Simulated assay, not measured.
Amino acid sequence: MKLLGISGTIIGAKTSIVVQKVLEEVKKHHPNVEIELLDLRKYELQFCDGRNPSTYTGDTKKVLDIIQSADFYIIGTPIFQGSLSGPLKNLFDLINPKDIRHKVMGFVATGGTYQHYLVIENQLKPIAGFFRAFVAPGYVYVNNDHFNKDNEIIDQDVLNRISDLAKEVVFMQEALKSSEEKLETVI
Rank of each mutant, 00 (worst) to 15 (best):
residue 1 M to H: 11
residue 4 L to I: 13
residue 4 L to K: 11
residue 5 G to R: 06
residue 6 I to G: 01
residue 6 I to R: 10
residue 9 T to K: 04
residue 10 I to E: 14
residue 15 T to P: 07
residue 18 V to C: 03
residue 18 V to E: 05
residue 19 V to R: 08
residue 20 Q to L: 15
residue 21 K to D: 14
residue 22 V to Q: 01
residue 22 V to G: 01
residue 23 L to K: 08
residue 24 E to D: 11
residue 26 V to D: 15
residue 29 H to N: 15
residue 31 P to R: 11
residue 38 L to N: 00
residue 38 L to T: 01
residue 38 L to W: 02
residue 39 D to P: 09
residue 43 Y to F: 14
residue 45 L to M: 05
residue 46 Q to C: 07
residue 49 D to C: 02
residue 50 G to S: 08
residue 53 P to N: 15
residue 54 S to L: 11
residue 60 T to C: 03
residue 60 T to H: 00
residue 61 K to R: 10
residue 62 K to V: 08
residue 62 K to R: 15
residue 65 D to P: 02
residue 66 I to K: 11
residue 67 I to T: 00
residue 69 S to P: 08
residue 69 S to W: 06
residue 70 A to H: 06
residue 70 A to K: 02
residue 70 A to C: 08
residue 74 I to H: 12
residue 77 T to M: 03
residue 77 T to A: 04
residue 78 P to I: 05
residue 78 P to V: 06
residue 80 F to L: 09
residue 81 Q to P: 00
residue 84 L to I: 15
residue 85 S to A: 10
residue 86 G to I: 12
residue 87 P to M: 02
residue 90 N to D: 03
residue 91 L to C: 03
residue 94 L to K: 00
residue 100 I to R: 00
residue 101 R to L: 04
residue 101 R to N: 03
residue 101 R to A: 04
residue 102 H to Y: 12
residue 102 H to W: 12
residue 104 V to A: 03
residue 105 M to Y: 06
residue 108 V to N: 00
residue 108 V to L: 07
residue 115 Q to P: 01
residue 115 Q to R: 06
residue 115 Q to V: 05
residue 116 H to F: 01
residue 116 H to A: 06
residue 118 L to H: 01
residue 118 L to T: 07
residue 119 V to N: 01
residue 121 E to I: 10
residue 123 Q to V: 03
residue 124 L to C: 13
residue 124 L to Q: 00
residue 126 P to G: 04
residue 128 A to T: 06
residue 130 F to E: 05
residue 131 F to K: 13
residue 131 F to I: 06
residue 133 A to H: 12
residue 135 V to N: 05
residue 135 V to F: 05
residue 139 Y to Q: 11
residue 141 Y to F: 15
residue 142 V to N: 06
residue 144 N to L: 10
residue 145 D to I: 07
residue 146 H to F: 11
residue 151 N to D: 13
residue 152 E to P: 11
residue 153 I to Y: 00
residue 156 Q to L: 06
residue 157 D to M: 12
residue 157 D to T: 09
residue 158 V to I: 15
residue 159 L to A: 00
residue 159 L to R: 06
residue 159 L to I: 13
residue 161 R to Y: 03
residue 164 D to H: 04
residue 165 L to A: 07
residue 167 K to H: 14
residue 167 K to Y: 05
residue 168 E to I: 02
residue 169 V to L: 08
residue 173 Q to L: 03
residue 174 E to F: 05
residue 176 L to R: 14
residue 176 L to C: 07
residue 182 K to V: 12
residue 183 L to Y: 07
residue 183 L to K: 14
residue 185 T to A: 09
residue 185 T to W: 08
residue 185 T to F: 08
residue 187 I to Q: 11
